[in-house]
Amino acid sequence: MLVTDSANVQSLIDAVDTADSATALIGAVRSLAAAQSPAAVTTLITVLGFNNPGAAVAAVDGLVALGQAAVPALLEQLDGYNYGARAWAIRALSMIGDPRALDVLIETARGDFALSVRRAAAKGLGGIDWDGLPDERRIPAQTLAIDTLLGALNDPEWVVRYAAIVGLSGLLAVRPQPDAAVENVRDRLASCSRDDAEVVVRARAQMALMPQ
């Protein structure tokens, strides 16, 4: 990790706060993200709500690079009102894969009103770092994630169904033993590969069933 002294981080934060154009903001956020300092987390999260996609992408990259250190603040500051900011935050949590985000990702994949948010959460459920959970919680948590994703296979939006398949594919990879849950997932993916209305969704289901 890059070591940046705290005075320098503060000046990078100030540069984000005082940026006077969309382009300047993107540059300032990139610099702050690159500092990889836990002190930058709050500011990076605030940027997610600015409606500036370039800056948000850079902020997500910065938060993901910080990994677990960014998770408590991301969960705490999840903005229930600004769906744009929420989508970016869910995307960051999905990419980090910290199991502390599990409840939020499940709730979001089940019922968020914005499809881009359901999409990000569904993918994230397949990328959880399951080793971060104690043994006795791992299987029940995976079962809950699988049930949520099987439900998302019926989403009216093709891209959410597609993301659910990607999520299930991630879960199949960590559950190689062919137990009942795994068999059920494979059966559902097989039906998807025949019956989904969209050829791209059928194709992704087919790909998920290919031998790894």
């Binding site: 097989a190 590969s193 025949r194 019956d195 209305a197 050829v199 059928r202 194709a203 289901a205 087919q206 790909m207 290919m210």
Partner: peptide
């Protein structure tokens, strides 16, 4: 064509 998995 539906009802068959597409060839990848």
């Amino acid at each position: 064509d539906q009802a068959t998995p597409p060839e990848l």
